[in-house]
Computed example of a mutant assay.
Amino acid sequence: MPSTVKGVIARSKKAPVELVDIIVPDPGPGEAVVQIQACGVCHTDLHYREGGINDDFPFLLGHEAAGVVEAVGDGVTEVAPGDFVILNWRAVCGQCRACHKGEPQYCFATHNATQKMTLTDGTELSPALGIGAFAEKTLVAAGQCTKVADADPAAVGLLGCGVMAGFGAAVNTGGVRRGESIAVFGCGGVGNAAIAGAQVAGATTIIAVDVDDTKLEWAKQFGATHTVNAKNEDPVAAIRELTGGFGADVVVEAVGRPETYEQAFYARDLAGRVVLVGVPTPDLQVSLPMIEIFGRGGALKSSWYGDCLPTRDFPMLVELYKQGRLDLDAFVTERIGIGDVEEAFEKMHGGKVLRSVVVL
């Protein structure tokens, strides 16, 4: 029988979110229904509400989530009822050219549930990133469920988006190694996850750059060895000074702005790697001298979901968390109810929290 549950929707562009009844169908072939235990309030959800992703309103928001599988449809072998899972938005297809090349972390045809969740009047909902987890239950493709060891859902659920994006930007995309230096521009949830990843990987010089002293203090908790307030000093000069005059081996840009990307470009060492993980708006452009691009060598990369493979990375990072080597608890600024999402957006927009997490 389909379930009627509470969920948070964005009904129209820039309108406050609403807590309403939604209908979650029984899982069909290849699908799973998951009881949501916790879901982080991510900036991407705010982008959906603001109309910055697309215009497929109404959206069922929420995607950074963990919970327990309640039921599965025909043909599902990845998970079973009772499994504790983290939801992901990269359910690899196994058939596209990336998968055939043995690079499923770049899958170009990730899939979602076929059926639609709806409002009680039958209006179809667009789930954020194919998940829609600001709800007591949600319907997803079974491949969007990654089974992990039991752990605090409010903490490990953040691996579903922001923490994985930042950690992976440093470790998977940037390839930061033992003894290397890294600079991270933007010390919100994603940037601090990049810092945490660099520490786990063994980077010895970890430089946090922001314009907010509170965020720079957060960065120290995650492993930053140095901090630079870009309001008070030139971050490129500061990074060079902290790296023997050379620049950092890896620079992660977690802001998504042309001015910070340009700073990141000039703050790297020769043959260094620049990684863009901050999400820019479609109107933004960056201009760089081609001779500088050529002359500095190295690589300019973008990181999509931290270039992660959930089945590989989520269990590993949960194990690091359980060993005390990756402090996911520190990302959870507050635990809130499902009716508090709009207020959480305001706190996030004001830079007052790393993550508000809805606990159900």
Rank of each mutant, 00 (worst) to 15 (best):
S12N: 05
D21T: 01
P27Q: 07
E31H: 12
V33T: 09
A38V: 09
C42A: 15
H43T: 09
T44A: 03
D55S: 13
D56P: 14
F57R: 02
P58Y: 03
G62C: 04
H63D: 13
E64Q: 03
G67M: 11
V69D: 07
V72A: 03
D83P: 11
V85N: 04
C93Q: 11
H100R: 10
H100T: 13
P104S: 12
F108K: 09
A109P: 14
K116F: 12
K116D: 08
E124R: 10
A128T: 08
I131C: 09
V140L: 02
A142T: 03
T146S: 08
V156F: 14
L159D: 06
V163P: 09
G166H: 10
G168N: 02
V171A: 09
A183Y: 03
T204H: 09
I207N: 03
V209C: 15
V209R: 06
D213K: 12
E217H: 08
K220Y: 03
Q221A: 13
A224S: 06
A224P: 06
A224D: 03
H226S: 13
T227R: 03
T227F: 05
A230E: 04
G244T: 02
F246D: 15
V252M: 00
E253W: 01
A254F: 02
V255Y: 03
P258W: 09
E259N: 15
T260H: 04
R273Q: 13
V274I: 01
P280T: 07
L284P: 11
L284I: 10
P289Y: 03
E292P: 08
R296F: 05
G298Q: 01
S302F: 15
C308Q: 07
P310E: 15
T311G: 11
T311R: 08
L317Q: 07
V318G: 11
L326M: 07
I336T: 14
V341L: 05
E342L: 11
G351E: 15
G351Q: 09
V359C: 05
